[in-house]
Amino acid sequence: MSTNRLISLMSEMAIFAKVVETGSFSETARQLGVTPSAISRSVTRLEQALGARLLQRTTRKLRLSESGKEVYARCVDMVNAAQAAMLVSSQFTPEPQGLVRVSVPKAVGRFVIHPHISDFLAKYPKVDVQLQLNDRYVDLIDDQVDLVIRITDHPPPGLMGRRLINIDHMICATPQYLARNGEPLHPHDLKAHNCIFLGEEPSDARWKFHQDSNRVSVSVHGRYAVNHTGARLDAVLNHLGIGSLPYFTAKEALQQGLIVQVLPKWIFRTNYCGAAWVLYPPTRHLPAKLSAFINFMAERLG
């Protein structure tokens, strides 16, 4: 095949890879802003040029043929090489610029990352930020984001990352609530209190503490459970009970004396403790806009 012919088919190869990724002509068309018939014609042209049927079409789904599997792997390599070329070129941009798309868990995004965004935008006037707050698992490729922040002990295999901040939890209450109901001196004393917890899983109502070699697990009860840290903070501030909160949510109220830590000599552990890591695909050439965002947040949170 001539070079000219090969170049003309590169767009068809990229579209074919996208069709396999989405599993649908219509979804590919929606993402690329064209019609499903245009996507179908593009795949047909590629099949005719290669002299092979790449996709087996049914009324419900698309399935790769044997030759299609091999061609798809090479098309993915081509798309990845093009993306790598774009990343290399961004290294020579004199200053960071472009859109940074970041996915963050809701509470971490609202209380940890969002407060620093205005300063970041002021420092880098050519960089825009799209902050996506959600608690579901986000895939960098499938969800089309540049960076993802996760609470984890270590970056998962296949990704690079930088540790931003430890996520520690505590239990808190207002001085007024404790004056009215008494202050727990031992984790087991929490059984007599109205406790405000996450409420998504049965284990959320089983609070775990340790102090040196002592390990204590307590089943707590309360009239209000809510899966948002800001709402739990509001409930605590309204004297509803003793609430479980990440330190980053409780910090300002603690400093102002509006709430106090309960059982401060005990370490409170939840399934959501760990560290917030900013993660990205492994590359030797991280775009300037991403390096700027990562370094800025690491410095601020460090």
Rank of each mutant, 00 (worst) to 15 (best):
H221K: 14
F293V: 09
R74F: 11
A275E: 01
M160A: 12
D204V: 00
I141G: 11
N227E: 11
A85Q: 01
G98M: 02
E299Q: 15
S11W: 07
V226H: 12
W207P: 11
S37A: 02
S103L: 06
V278Y: 00
A288G: 13
G257A: 08
Q130L: 15
I39G: 00
V102F: 05
R232L: 01
R63K: 13
N295Q: 13
F268N: 08
V218F: 00
K106F: 12
L50V: 07
L159M: 11
L240N: 08
F209D: 12
R5Y: 07
K18I: 06
I294T: 06
V129Q: 01
R136C: 09
S213D: 13
Y272P: 04
R215M: 00
K251N: 11
V218K: 08
C273I: 12
L131V: 01
M1H: 09
L6Q: 12
D212M: 10
M170I: 15
K123S: 09
N80C: 11
V260S: 10
H186T: 15
A235C: 14
G182H: 08
G243E: 02
V278T: 08
P175C: 01
D119V: 14
M1W: 07
P184D: 00
S244H: 13
V20D: 01
S244N: 12
Y280N: 12
T35K: 08
Q211D: 03
H186F: 09
G98C: 02
M1A: 05
V88F: 10
R60W: 05
H116G: 10
K265M: 06
P156V: 14
D168W: 00
R223G: 06
V19Q: 03
T35E: 01
N166W: 05
R300H: 08
V138Q: 00
I165Q: 11
E27A: 07
V34E: 09
V260P: 04
I117S: 00
I149T: 07
E252I: 08
R206A: 07
V226M: 10
A85E: 13
N227S: 09
R300F: 06
F293R: 02
G158E: 04
N227P: 05
S219V: 13
F296V: 14
M10P: 01
H210C: 07
K69A: 13
V104E: 04
D128G: 13
L237H: 06
I7A: 13
T174D: 06
K126P: 09
Q255M: 12
V148F: 13
A107S: 15
D143T: 12
S203C: 11
G109F: 00
L178S: 04
N181F: 12
S219H: 10
Y137T: 10
G302H: 15
A82R: 01
L263F: 03
S65P: 06
R215Q: 15
L147I: 08
L254E: 08
T22L: 14
I7L: 15
W266R: 08
V148A: 10
K289L: 08
P105V: 05
S11N: 10
P264I: 03
S291K: 02
M78A: 15
A205E: 11
V145R: 03
M297A: 06
E27C: 05
A173P: 06
G241L: 01
R57P: 03
D139Y: 13
F268R: 02
D168R: 14
Q83V: 15
L6G: 10
A122I: 07
L286Q: 04
Q261S: 07
L121T: 13
G161F: 04
I7K: 11
E66N: 04
S65Y: 12
